[in-house]
Design a protein around this nucleic acid. Structure first.
Lengths: 113, 113
DNA sequence: CCATCATATGCCCATATAGGCATGCGTCAA
DNA sequence: TTGACGCATGCCTATATGGGCATATGATGG
């Protein structure tokens, strides 16, 4: 079945390295497709496709500007990802030694009450 | 070409909803495969496959415990994701009105100096 | 209306899964 | 050694892209 449609999930959308690069570039302000494509070394159709995915999950907006179409960042959708990973913050500083394992066992036991 | 191998990138690993569920469950402590599979309503082989991906990107560790194999969380790999998304924090509270666009244009202009 | 520039799409190919199943493998108990 | 139990894998299928190209669409200037 492959992965669920990339088009309906921010986690999927940012799983693509080039799409992440696009988002980073857009922090600097709105850009037309061609410029993005050139700066990231990809073809124009390629950039358009990635932008479409980003647009469909709401991470970018597009605005007509004469002959061009400017893409701009709408980072609100990244917030859930930031918060989700933040839910693990207390864990990524642990040493994973015996003591930690023991503590986690206690937590688990408590959960199963 | 489909997406780059899920096996070498944390962003890809957590793009799968069920894998995220596994990570959340593991916050409660180590668990054997079968238990994870049952709690998440997936088959044992299915759980094993997801765990393999998570293990290959370093998000979980496994430890032999007699006949069982306990999987535990190693959230350190989530930190980069948290930080990457954090880099957009200043943007997700913006209103994206005209003023904001103007401000971003200024930022962009300054960047291009 | 026509030519041109900026993008978006449609197509085709190769590849990477996610799932379902059956089965191989290692460990433990009798 | 024989079973049974707990997992990991191999195999096969349907699907979802990512990329490269050619081309349809739209908007702008003459």
């Amino acid at each position: 079945m492959a992965r669920a449609a990339t088009t309906s999930d921010v986690f999927n959308a940012i799983a693509e390295p080039q799409r992440r690069e696009i988002l980073v570039l857009l922090r600097g302000g709105e850009r037309p497709v061609t410029e993005l494509a050139e700066e990231l070394g990809m073809t124009q159709p390629g950039a358009s496709k990635h932008l479409r995915v980003l647009r469909e999950v709401g991470l970018v907006r597009d605005r007509k500007a004469g002959k061009q179409r400017l893409y701009g960042l709408d980072a609100r959708g990244l917030r859930p990802v930031h918060e989700w990973t933040g839910g693990f913050e207390q864990f990524w500083n642990e040493s994973f030694g015996r003591l930690d394992a023991y503590v986690q066992d206690l937590k688990q036991a408590r959960q199963e009450d």
